[in-house]
Design a protein around this nucleic acid. Structure first.
Ligand SMILES: [Mn+2]
Ligand SMILES: [Mn+2]
Ligand SMILES: [Zn+2]
Ligand SMILES: [Zn+2]
Lengths: 142, 142
DNA sequence: CAATAGTTTAGAATTGTTTTAATGTAAATG
DNA sequence: CATTTACATTAAAACAATTCTAAACTATTG
């Protein structure tokens, strides 16, 4: 059950020492078999509720940013209210459920690969991601 | 040059009376031949600089939200710092230039239409939009 | 002309995020 | 091991975008 050495390695790679608080963050982020999406608030709640570890917001932000910079996390922008992060760091597409505000990975089998015919001159394509907004059938979509 | 009746109509359709301030907003948004992308800050500056009309931020926000709700404007989320709005309300794709932070419409000729093979059960697809992040060739992309 | 409904505004409040500065802890040095 | 130095945690302050409030203003209606 203890992946501590893996977490320690990830922290070191991100330029951070493996402290108690940071290892708790790693446990929440990297121990589930499935990848998931979260907000900073979600994550802080998980650490304080499930792990009964008091943690400062500043520490959460610092650690998440270091992981993002290193590529262990991705940031997804859906709306301007708050930032969503993704433990699935591969290039992939998303469904966004407007009823529940839920972000769901779109398997590569569910979508044909996107073909860009013309790019901006002098620029290199860094990523191509599709966002599919969905809602229940009978719903006004403002 | 005066499209005032068109603006008045748009405002009425959005549930707003055509006041001086709101007509200035319309002039900036809907008189250019080309559609464009803007932030609330951009828009406020344009109104105060180019139109020499003092306007309250609250009025700008209110009016923009009413237009968005009615479908006369679209909101585009690129990052969580601030909201971008788009006077092009058709479903379309974007290039985002990470060097300049510029948002550029992707013509439908430049991209093959995206084919979703499997959708979330019980949900209807409201929009499918592609975001292509680009940057100059020699550039670190954290 | 009232009375009423809607509008503008400055500023306050709120929210998500970042920064600060003090205190705490671990690693390195000798 | 004692000391020094580097890094970490934290609460609270600062900040920036956005929303809300409440008072003054304007237009519309009866
Ligand atoms: Mn929003
Ligand atoms: Mn913000
Ligand atoms: Zn994802
Ligand atoms: Zn656009």
């Amino acid at each position: 059950m203890s992946n501590t050495s893996i977490y320690t390695e990830k922290l070191r790679e991100s330029g951070l020492r493996p402290t108690r608080q940071r290892l708790k963050i790693c446990e929440v982020l990297f121990s589930p078999e499935k990848t998931f999406h979260f907000t900073i608030n979600d994550l802080t709640k998980m650490i304080e509720d499930k792990m009964s570890e008091k943690i400062s917001l500043a520490t959460v932000y610092n650690t998440i940013h270091a992981f993002k910079k290193k590529g262990y996390l991705k940031e997804i922008s859906i709306n301007s209210d708050k930032s969503y992060f993704d433990t699935n760091v591969t290039e992939h597409h998303h469904f966004f459920d407007e009823d529940t505000n839920e972000l769901i990975d779109c398997s590569n089998d569910d979508i044909d690969s996107v073909n860009i015919k013309k790019n901006i001159t002098g620029k290199k394509i860094k990523s191509v991601e599709v966002l599919i907004k969905v809602a229940s059938d009978n719903q006004n979509q403002n």
